[in-house]
Design a protein around this nucleic acid. Structure first.
Length: 607
DNA sequence: ATAGGGTTAG
């Protein structure tokens, strides 16, 4: 009740603005309201569950669970299996999957086998670790032991398949189990929707949602979406730029009587911020407070990150003070976001200062703090500082990640230090790190751009032979390198092999080829590529148009440029600054070209 | 007793 009153005051007085520094003072007096008093934590530890069945609502820490599990394994008579399962569940919820596997492996040593619940926990653990194959073997074990997989088992497997980008398999499995008579529940649908959204298939998720709403899935189930289900979908839609759809879903959800929480608001606010819709984001933020929903550290992190991306790091920094005054504890993400903001503004000294002071203020740094600052040094071409920071993190016992290496490799390539790249790359295995697809893209791109085309080709071939599944970005890097080196024959050869490599050419792939052919004065082939991509259902975007028009412009084919401009206008494409440059070039080439001026189409929203 | 959601670094 008290919170609501404060919230209403906050909302009515904050109607103005939230995000600029001048308004910060005003805001701080408005939004800061006392935390709801929380009763001091009871100092009594939870009763140990020895011998007794654990209560579900009993909160125990992971380390307690681990020691308790050890004790229980030795106990005679044996505690009920449900107690073991609770401890396994605690460790699984904390995402301590390696510990979980160790726990389960120790059970047979005392002649105890996990029951089907324990096996479901293990199966889910493998799925979380992106080892869906092992997940399926656990299901084999479930069957072998005479248990039956249930909808929980299948939901975990669907998640596992989605995590490995096997959306088709996930949908296939779902269809299969429905045919077998299993009933997907709201968690199954939520998992699928989330999996679809995470793999860039939010539109598929939305279509699925519409069909479910209309009862077209051929199930006799009542479609009963939850807050979490809607949050996943809203977030997924927003992440793909479909913020309008996100807003619709938000309203639809509330229309069903499901009230948004801090998470649902966060997802939508983030989406609006990303689109630069600050007014609407602000409105939602106020609405949220108005309804008594307290913004948490994540909400603040979203707002601060958005401010940083807009180049308003000082304002983001003001938000940090605001959240501290509100009693909301910033976390390492808060600080890393700010440090990155300073780096983005080129204020590397401010970044370093915050990096130093966060530790002094008792906020622990993590690997990401180092990654952000190392990246900042690389971006302002201070490789020496970046490398010394890297050495510092190693000395202090921080374990570098693949991202650390990717940042440094990018920085080294940018400075043309190919020898250092080779050295650093070879160090990755010493740190037990496996290069990821981004690493390979960096290497392929870097070798190409540093006159080591042969090395790029060799790496590509090694990867192919090793069974590593190259993605379209990897292929595009080499493709671009081949084109830029004038090896159009080799590029074409690689392009033709995309299908057999199981790689779908993207818009970017076609642009690379079009650009390559244009620069090689093979305008007809460039144009054929353009036609081919349209036929293949890969819609050209403004960048593709620009690439082809630049080619025709450089080859003094004004009519063709005008034709393409017309095509753009017909499709309601907005020209960008590159388009403008092409038009200017076209008109300035020759007096006679000015006759094309009147032929240049009117674009929507253009003066 | 088991399964699903939103934030940061390339």
């Amino acid at each position: 009740m008290v919170a609501r009153t404060y919230a209403r005051q906050a909302a009515s007085a904050t109607r103005t603005r939230i995000f600029t520094p001048s308004e910060r003072g005003e805001l701080s007096t408005i939004i800061i309201h006392p935390r709801n008093p929380t009763p001091p934590k009871s100092s009594t530890q939870p009763q140990t569950p020895l011998g007794k069945s654990l209560k579900a609502d009993q909160k125990i820490t992971v380390s307690d669970a681990l020691t308790e599990f050890d004790k229980m394994l030795q106990l005679q008579p044996r505690p009920p299996m449900a107690s073991f399962n609770t401890l396994l569940g605690t460790v699984a919820k904390a995402k301590r999957y390696q510990d979980l596997i160790l726990m389960i492996n120790r059970m047979p040593e005392v002649n105890l086998l996990p029951d089907y619940i324990g096996m479901n926990i293990l199966l889910n653990c493998y799925c979380e670790l992106k080892r869906v194959g092992l997940g399926f073997s656990v299901m084999g074990g479930i069957l072998k032991r005479g248990y039956n997989p249930n909808i929980v088992t299948f939901t975990a497997l669907i998640k596992g398949l989605c995590m490995e980008d096997k959306i088709g398999d996930a949908l296939g499995l779902l269809k299969k189990i429905i045919r077998m008579g299993f009933h997907p529940n709201v968690k199954t649908w939520g998992t699928l929707v989330n999996g679809l959204c995470r793999t860039g298939n939010a539109e598929v998720a939305l279509r699925l949602h519409e069909e479910m709403k209309n009862g077209n899935v051929g199930l006799d189930l009542r479609f009963n979406p939850s807050l979490i289900y809607y949050s996943s979908l809203i977030d997924g839609l927003c992440k793909e730029g479909l913020v309008e759809k996100g807003k619709e879903l938000f309203l639809e959800m509330e229309g069903r009587g499901i009230s948004a929480d801090v998470v649902a608001y966060g997802a939508l606010i983030h989406g609006l911020c990303r689109m630069g819709e600050w007014e609407q984001a602000k409105e939602l933020f106020i609405q949220m407070i108005d309804r008594g929903i307290r913004p948490n550290v994540v909400t603040f992190n979203i707002l601060m990150d958005s401010l940083c991306k807009e180049g308003k790091t000082d304002e983001a920094s003001g938000m940090l003070e605001l959240m501290i005054r509100r009693g909301e504890k910033p976390d390492s993400i808060t600080f890393n976001t700010l440090i990155d903001g300073y780096c983005l503004e080129g204020r590397i000294d401010d970044a370093k200062e915050l990096f130093v002071s966060m530790a002094a203020k008792g906020h622990e740094r993590d690997v990401a703090s180092y990654n952000v600052l190392i990246n900042g040094y690389c971006k302002c071409r201070k490789l020496k500082e970046a490398m010394s920071l890297f050495r510092e993190m190693l000395c202090k016992g921080y374990k570098p990640t693949v991202i650390t290496f990717n940042i440094l490799l990018t920085g080294l390539f940018q400075e043309g230090k190919v020898e250092d790249v080779r050295e650093l790359y070879s160090q990755m295995k010493d740190h037990d790190l496996t290069p990821d697809s981004a690493t390979y893209s960096i290497l392929l791109d870097g070798f190409c751009k540093n006159d080591c085309l042969v090395e790029a080709i060799e790496l590509f071939e090694t990867l192919e032979k090793s069974g590593y599944k190259l993605n379209s970005l990897n292929c595009n890097c080499l493709l671009d390198g081949l084109c830029k080196a004038g090896k159009l024959d080799l590029a074409s050869e690689l392009f033709e092999r995309f299908p057999e490599m199981g790689v779908a050419p993207t818009n970017f792939t076609y642009s690379i080829m079009i650009n390559g052919f244009c620069k090689d004065r093979q305008l007809e082939k460039a144009n054929n590529m353009f036609v081919e991509m349209e036929n293949k259902g890969c819609a050209p975007d403004v960048a593709t148009f620009n690439t082809l028009m630049r080619g025709f412009c450089d080859n003094n084919d004004a009519p063709k440029v005008v034709e393409l401009l017309q095509k753009m206008a017909d499709r309601n494409f907005l020209p960008d600054s590159f388009t403008a440059t092409i038009v200017v070039d076209l008109l300035s080439k020759d007096k006679s070209y000015s006759k094309y001026l009147k032929l240049i189409p009117k674009f929507p929203d253009m003066a």
